[in-house]
Amino acid sequence: MRPSLPDGRSGAEENDGSLGCRRRTALTCTTVSAVADLLGVDAASVSTDSPFTDLGLSSTQLARLTAHLEDAMGVEVPLTAIYDHPDIEQLVEYLAMR
C-alpha cells in the first residue's frame, strides 16, 4: 500500500497523467496570457495553434515572451525554443518536458 502524502492524498493521481495535464494547462494559460499581454488583446482571441509570427509577435516581443515564461516557470527558456516550437501548443509540449 502506498503511504499517504502529508495532505492525505495517496499520490496515485501523479501516475494517472493528471499532474502532467494540470502542468500543461497551467503552461498554456501562462503562455496565452503572456502573448495576449504582449499583443494588447483579450486572451480568448489568442489561437494556440497559430504560429507566433501569424499572431503578430515581433522578434522583440518573442524575446519578452521568453523572459515572461522564465519568470513564471523559474527555468531558462531560450529564444531558440520559440523558433523551434513556433506556436503555443508546440512550445507548451516542449516546456512540459523540462
Rank of each mutant, 00 (worst) to 15 (best):
R2W: 10
R2K: 10
P3T: 10
P3L: 05
S4N: 13
S4F: 14
L5W: 05
P6K: 13
P6A: 13
R9Y: 05
R9A: 07
R9C: 03
S10P: 00
G11H: 01
A12H: 00
E14I: 04
E14F: 13
N15A: 12
D16S: 03
D16V: 02
G17H: 05
G17S: 08
S18A: 09
S18E: 08
S18I: 09
S18Y: 06
L19S: 11
L19A: 13
C21M: 15
C21H: 15
R22V: 06
R23H: 12
R23K: 14
R24P: 03
L27C: 10
T28V: 05
T28P: 09
T28Y: 02
T28I: 05
T28K: 09
T30N: 12
T31P: 06
V32A: 11
S33K: 14
V35Y: 05
V35D: 03
A36F: 06
L38W: 10
L39V: 01
L39S: 00
V41E: 11
D42E: 11
D42S: 13
A43G: 11
A43M: 07
A44P: 00
A44M: 03
V46T: 06
S47L: 01
S47P: 00
T48R: 02
S50A: 11
S50N: 01
P51F: 01
P51T: 00
F52Q: 02
F52I: 01
F52A: 02
T53S: 08
D54K: 01
L55P: 00
L57Q: 01
S59Q: 10
T60W: 13
T60N: 09
T60Q: 13
L62N: 03
A63W: 10
A63C: 12
R64H: 14
R64C: 12
L65Y: 09
A67F: 15
H68D: 15
H68N: 14
H68T: 15
H68E: 15
L69V: 04
L69P: 04
E70T: 13
E70P: 02
E70C: 03
D71L: 15
D71N: 14
A72F: 12
A72T: 04
M73T: 11
V75A: 04
E76Y: 06
V77H: 02
V77I: 07
L79K: 07
L79S: 08
A81R: 06
A81Y: 06
A81P: 07
I82G: 06
D84K: 10
D84A: 13
D84Y: 08
H85K: 05
P86C: 02
P86H: 02
D87P: 00
I88G: 05
E89G: 04
E89Y: 03
Q90A: 14
V92I: 10
L95G: 03
L95W: 07
L95F: 06
A96R: 07
A96F: 09
M97Q: 15
M97Y: 13
R98I: 07
